[in-house]
């Protein structure tokens, strides 16, 4: 399972970088969306995939029974999803505004500030 997920994460990263390298603004944002999702999936995978083993502690015990799934990565991913969502919302508004101001969807036409 981990091996399969590794390939999925790799493919997602590759796809997002490819989208970001295109000239269109919309594709740039699609690339950003894929990018943040692939990072979340990466965290999920590297911290170990366990099925059906909640980290609950039985009454009278101090540790959960063996082989539990680690809840912390899920907390990390949840935080990362929230942050990613906020940032993406900003990015979408930004490209909309940029399109209105520049009247172009082409990154190659936005070079007046470049060096």
């Amino acid at each position: 399972m981990e091996t399969l997920m590794a390939f999925v994460v790799g493919a997602l990263f590759a796809a997002s970088i490819y989208m970001m390298l295109r000239r269109s603004l919309v594709k740039l944002v699609i690339g950003l969306i894929l990018l943040s999702n692939s990072a979340n999936l990466l965290i999920f995978t590297v911290s170990g995939l366990e099925r059906g083993l909640p980290p609950l502690i039985a009454p009278g015990e101090t540790l959960p029974a063996g082989g539990w799934a680690d809840p912390l990565p899920q907390a990390l991913i949840l935080t990362a999803i929230v942050i990613g969502f906020g940032v993406l919302a900003f990015a979408v508004v930004l490209i909309h505004r940029a399109y209105q101001v520049v009247k172009e969807d082409d990154l190659d036409k936005m070079r007046s500030t470049d060096t």
């Binding site: 603004l25 930004l94 940029a98 101001v101 520049v102 936005m110 007046s112 500030t113």
Partner: peptide, 14 residues
């Protein structure tokens, strides 16, 4: 929201 700011911001944000 000037034009230069938008162009700069897209690179900065990305």
């Amino acid at each position: 929201g000037e034009r230069a700011q938008m162009e700069g911001a897209i690179k900065y944000v990305t």
